[in-house]
């Protein structure tokens, strides 16, 4: 792996029976960058996310994540580990995500949604809990403190004890990002974070994503259809069409790439550049 990369995807292929959703997808995500994955509907962007985050086991190819410890881990091999393998190891390795169709624990309170994401750090010992040991109370307090920190960042403090399912849509989106951050990730994957948000909320979101990177030192990979958002905040853009990478580069390169313009069928160049939705 290149030392500057946090994530290296090589030859990623995902087949569902006869349907090839991703074919030989390769790209890098630089450490500390904001990288966007764009493409027309059905291009296979979410499938890439599902493979990265261990939601699916890729049919072929490798996904390497650099770790603080040194040797990079391969996401697929985490899933395949005998007896103990599973998606949860991917989260523990440092990849967190949000979903296009929000997947909160709707029947848990807002703060519980954040606590449950931190259990890797919280003491899991029931006996320690029953006895109320000092370490147990300390870790619970730390967990709560972290949860409330993120509620504050997201402006959700007042909603802490409401059920997650009761929140308005925009707040659910922010809560989902907060929950992903509570797992303590190195890479956070946001799947269409601006979907359904109004222009003001979208603007706040782009500020938030910048903050995540600058203040919380997390690398961001996002799927987004809102071109003004993507062009405004990302340093590197990967374009998928029909499951394959058709272009990659900085916003300038992508904006002027004929392959990209052609992929957005019927989309004028102005729309790719502009703020009006290509959605």
């Amino acid at each position: 792996m290149k030392p500057s990369s946090l994530l290296e995807v090589r030859g990623l292929t995902m087949r569902f029976g006869g349907i090839v959703a991703n074919n030989d997808v390769s790209f890098d995500v630089a450490d500390g960058s904001i990288t966007a994955l764009i493409g027309p509907n059905g291009a296979g962007k979410t499938t890439v996310f599902n493979c990265l985050t261990g939601f699916y086991r890729a049919s072929g190819g490798t996904i390497h994540l650099a770790t603080a410890a040194g040797a990079p881990v391969e996401v697929g091999s985490l899933l395949d580990k005998p007896f103990i393998g599973g998606s949860y190891l991917v989260a523990r390795a440092g990849i967190a995500r949000t979903f296009q169709n929000i997947r909160l624990f709707r029947e848990m309170s807002v703060v519980e949604n954040l606590l449950v994401a931190q259990h890797q750090r919280l003491d899991r010992n029931v006996l320690a809990g029953a006895l109320g040991t000092r370490k147990f109370r300390q870790t619970e307090r730390d967990g709560l403190a972290r949860a409330f920190h993120w509620l504050e960042v997201m402006g959700l403090t007042a909603d802490a004890n409401r059920l997650a399912g009761e929140l308005p849509y925009g707040r659910q989106r922010r809560l989902e990002i907060a929950r992903a951050m509570c797992t303590g990730p190195r890479l956070v994957c946001l799947d269409e974070p601006a979907a359904g948000l109004n222009p003001r909320e979208t603007h706040e979101l782009s500020e938030l994503i910048r903050t995540l990177r600058s203040e919380h030192r997390v690398t961001v990979l996002l799927i987004e259809h809102d071109m003004s958002l993507v062009m405004g905040i990302s340093e590197h853009i990967v374009v998928l069409d029909h499951g394959e990478v058709i272009a990659a580069g900085n916003p300038e390169t992508i904006r002027s790439s004929p392959a990209v313009i052609a992929a957005y069928l019927g989309a004028e160049e102005a729309e790719v550049e502009g703020g009006e939705g290509t959605r």
């Binding site: 985050t53 261990g54 939601f55 103990i84 599973g86 998606s87 949860y88 991917v90 989260a91 523990r92 967190a96 995500r97 979903f99 997947r103 624990f105 449950v116 994401a117 259990h119 890797q120 929950r179 797992t183």
Partner: peptide, 8 residues
Amino acid sequence: MAAILGID
């Protein structure tokens, strides 16, 4: 989703 958040 629980698994994605690191729960075994």
